[in-house]
Nucleic acid binder design. Structure first.
Lengths: 242, 242
DNA sequence: GCCGATTTGTCCGTATGTATC
DNA sequence: CGATACATACGGACAAATCGG
């Protein structure tokens, strides 16, 4: 958890907004007021407010103020802009997670795997298939590829719990950035076997490449989501025209 | 187009990265060097670099430097994090756009529309159905709802071109923030009629609420995308654990 | 292992510009 | 026009991480 001052102000304002201390459409205190209440510089409050803008919580208006545009009804399962693990997002929504490891193997990347994942040909990898349950329902089928050099000592047992916890707390791998691409794909036999797709013949697919702090791409994951439980949220700001 | 100094530095660095002036995995010049080359303060270069981080172009590492992680092969049609119009994104990809207005009406929001769109019951709206073609293929079916008070004088003719151009350049409405939710939905009769869905029985759907600088939500749009031409990209950074 | 140089991260204070009312 | 509010920019200080000697 970041201990930076701006981050605490950000979190404080965020909870105030979430708990309804500021009403929808109401203006937040001005920067000057925030400076005195949090006893900090103007840069610091501006940084906190910027983070709220990025979250889609508020809207800044030059000459007017900062408006609360947070609507609790729109709160949802997947919030974009951050890398969140399955367990974290389950905890945030007070749901019970379970993970089943369907397949665990150590492989070497061939041409086909290389072009799909972005790993170099010949790279030594762990390849896993994992099924994620939420409140007893099978919702997500994950295909994970981890670089063996980085995720050393990964086992089936670890994979049944949180791989990221192992990476961060045991191996001290710091996860930094992740590139994600969302598509819709037709179902495969494996999807059909493990996910209850009902009438749907396709899934929401998120393919992601994750980098550690050394700039090494150490993970490629394809998450295949049951469409009726899939929901992805994003807040955009317009940076003027082309 | 923002004329701010940091923005020009940002754009300059961005094109340098895109044109391959810095190699993949190479470190960019240090902040100190950038300060001298661009003749500005440290805050200003840091702001430019932050924007590149948000775009997923580079990765900063305390004590080491800023690494280029841009891969041209991952360049794609829809880049998240900004509000881009259909025409803008078509231009960026050198494709020929066409828009067909299927339906144009002035309506009053009833309970059903209100709960779907977020407009108040009784709000006066323009409701449009528009079909977007790219290089001759029908790819997107849009359901647009605009608040009449804000989008005054909207006509079918304007809707065949760019509504946003009309809003920004004629009405001087400044579009600021937009909340988007991505889901996968089963096709409707209308989808089936106008989009060539092939074997697919569902679509990628983006629902968005857009606010102007007065904090008024003036647009609700549901974009229904042909799945085989849909691709959404996002860059995430991890803000440490829960 | 330690130290110093380099590099990014955080924070502060101040000045000026621009939009709103 | 003046007061208020956010936007941009500058300069300086210290902390934290990295790397080489």
């Amino acid at each position: 958890m970041p201990k930076a001052k701006y981050y605490k102000i950000y979190q404080n304002l965020k909870t105030k907004i979430e708990t309804g201390e500021y009403e929808f459409q109401e203006l937040l205190p001005s920067e000057h007021q925030l400076i005195t209440t949090y006893d900090c510089s103007r840069n610091t409050v501006r940084r906190a407010v910027s983070a709220l803008v990025a979250d889609g919580y508020v809207q800044t208006m030059q000459g007017k103020g900062v408006r609360n545009i947070f609507q609790p009804t729109l709160q949802t399962s997947f919030i974009l802009g951050g890398i969140e693990t399955f367990r974290e997002s389950a905890a945030r929504n007070h749901q019970v997670p379970k993970t089943e490891v369907l397949y665990f193997a150590e492989i070497t990347a061939d041409q086909k795997i290389s072009s799909r994942t972005g790993f170099a040909v010949g790279a030594e990898l762990y390849y896993l298939q994992r099924l994620h349950y939420l409140d007893g329902k099978a919702l997500i089928l994950n295909h994970n590829y981890f670089l063996k050099d980085v995720a050393v000592g990964l086992t089936r047992e670890i994979a049944e719990n949180s791989i990221y916890e192992y990476l961060e707390n045991v191996l001290h791998v710091s996860i930094v950035t992740s590139k994600r691409i969302m598509t819709v794909e037709k179902m495969t036999e494996i999807d059909e076997k493990y996910l209850d797709l009902g009438d749907y013949n396709c899934l929401a697919v998120i393919s992601s490449q994750t980098y550690n702090s050394d700039g090494i791409m150490f993970e490629y994951t394809q998450s295949r989501h049951r469409p009726d439980y899939f929901r992805f949220q994003d807040n955009a700001t317009r940076r003027s025209a082309i």
